[in-house]
Design a protein around this nucleic acid. Sequence first.
DNA 1: AATGAATGAGTATTCATTCAT
DNA 2: TATGAATGAATACTCATTCAT
Lengths: 202, 202, 202, 202
Amino acid sequence: MKEWKNREVSARRAEILAHAEKIFAAKGFHKATMAEIASSAGFATGSLYQLFDNKEDLFATVILELTDAALERLTNAVGKQTTASAQITAFITELFSVTQKNTNLLTILMRGDVVVASRVSHRIRLDLIEKTERQIAIAEDILQRGVSDGEFMSGINCRITAMSLLGGVRFFAFYRIITNEEFVLTQEIIEDFLQTFMRGIR
Amino acid sequence: MKEWKNREVSARRAEILAHAEKIFAAKGFHKATMAEIASSAGFATGSLYQLFDNKEDLFATVILELTDAALERLTNAVGKQTTASAQITAFITELFSVTQKNTNLLTILMRGDVVVASRVSHRIRLDLIEKTERQIAIAEDILQRGVSDGEFMSGINCRITAMSLLGGVRFFAFYRIITNEEFVLTQEIIEDFLQTFMRGIR
Amino acid sequence: MKEWKNREVSARRAEILAHAEKIFAAKGFHKATMAEIASSAGFATGSLYQLFDNKEDLFATVILELTDAALERLTNAVGKQTTASAQITAFITELFSVTQKNTNLLTILMRGDVVVASRVSHRIRLDLIEKTERQIAIAEDILQRGVSDGEFMSGINCRITAMSLLGGVRFFAFYRIITNEEFVLTQEIIEDFLQTFMRGIR
Amino acid sequence: MKEWKNREVSARRAEILAHAEKIFAAKGFHKATMAEIASSAGFATGSLYQLFDNKEDLFATVILELTDAALERLTNAVGKQTTASAQITAFITELFSVTQKNTNLLTILMRGDVVVASRVSHRIRLDLIEKTERQIAIAEDILQRGVSDGEFMSGINCRITAMSLLGGVRFFAFYRIITNEEFVLTQEIIEDFLQTFMRGIR
DNA sequence: AATGAATGAGTATTCATTCAT
DNA sequence: TATGAATGAATACTCATTCAT
């Protein structure tokens, strides 16, 4: 019985988070109302407060769970490869894939209301920094190993390169969002992107 | 007299925009109040409405003027060079410089409230797209010319490379902001960044 | 079995009332929540509604039972004495004692939310009037008998004197509550109080 | 011009306080709404917040101003007399008068919401204690002087007697409120009250 | 009988905008 | 033109009460 109830709660939670994600993405933190999120998820306003402390907590939870999932997917994708080349390719490919599929998250993050403080958004900000650091670290580690193994040029600044890679991929996601998803990411683009990083332009 | 009045108005306008920039950057669009901006600039609340239609208009104007100035600086920097290599170096160097000096603008943009619609923010968005497109175009043109001149590798996808470059630089700015400007951009980092793009990693 | 059930119900009721008393005294009617009272008493929220119609009913019951007990103690104390002097002394002494021991009740009453109407609080109010009248009546009766017996000065207005006495004692209780119980009622104070009433000040 | 504006603000303030007093007395702190007070005073809701920080501040101000006025009247009444007897009579007479005319204040105080803390109500509470202390002090001083002058019996506990007096008078006010003002305070009652204190009952 | 999750009505407060002076 | 007082719409959050289990 308890198990059933827990499943219920868990489903309720997921339901609310899914609807909150859509509405926060569509309207931003401020214009999204608790009443709208609740009714969209099929609950009364008060019910949201049984699972989340307040609006900011709900907002933070949406972001945290999505960034967690993204980071996990990246880690898994990289883990399936062995050589540094294959890993960096897998990393970038998966990063492109993740950003493509997480339009809501990206929109939420780009809308902001996240960067600056206040009790809860401070938590979001720290999480974003941490998740970003971990993404950088994944790429940096691969590059470092690639250099050790002789796969990559010695002398490259692994951290700077890792950050450049991340920034590049994120920019395509940003560009896609601001152009209302008119920009479509093809396999070809990903390959060209990889090639640029691999061979350089000169 | 008219001239004098215009100069007066113009000074008032600039004054207000400067204070609005700081406050929007510090608090974000929603938490910044018209009353605070007005008093900070030494005016009465109502006076803001003589120069700007409403809060969103003021916000949009702040962004537009800053992005205009940034674009102009980029164009100038590139114009002073002749070879594609020198131009792309100048472009990236200046882009780093601009993002370093425009912490307010970056913070405003990252806070968001910009990405999505409503009468005025639509205008902001269109401007952002246009300015981004023009930045891409500048880099793309340089690259294209570099390929034609034989300075750059033939076969590279100039547009994708231009976007990657832009994304890379912007990421360093993003990273600097979220880490509360603890991350400092050195000349060395810029050089490593350039090197990565020039030589590739392999 | 019925008897057992009744005992059960009765115990439950007393338990809830005791916890409600504490919480109402500590937080006042409005800030005390049914959930808090329930959990404090070890029940589920819904269970309170099996014994009390609603929050106001619970509140009223707390007050009524406490004022009943106080009145009973007063009556008993007076009944043990025979002369008017001894009775009025016993009355005042017991009244001081009752107010000392019923800090919760006094706090509840002083916090108010009691004086004015609405279905249930009307009931509380009527009860307060009645209990006050009966306290006045007890003192008045003693005084009257004292006058008849020649123990007390003829010509005194027994009702007014009774009310003055009650007011005096209640003020000490009020004073003790508002000063956070820093004011301590000693035997000496009680004696001085009695003396003032007995001999007058002139 | 400034003077005129100030007069305006002052009038506005007084207007709001007068209406707030009535409504707080009629409904209590919690059931009185800011919207009701504002519209009753002929203003928009937001206007209340230009003169008062919040609802509690408005509430506290109502109480403070009324208790201030009451204390001033008491001081004045006593100041007009010279002998201790005349002063104590004036004090009690004025105290009865003040409580008669301040039904709203008394109702507000009796409803409570005042006794216990929270940022602002703490301020109210401290004020109530102070005002009570000062009322006690006025009576105590008179009694003390009366004893020194030989007008009053030596050996009386002046402070306890002062408190008894205050409690007595306040009780009549309390009684009047709870009986819906059916109880009318006549000159005769006041005289009987005074007599009891002067001569004692024995 | 007991539970406690779900409900949704009710309200203080903020702040962009207006307009009389 | 400049002012800043007045406006009033808009919304998060609480908690008494209900009722399916």
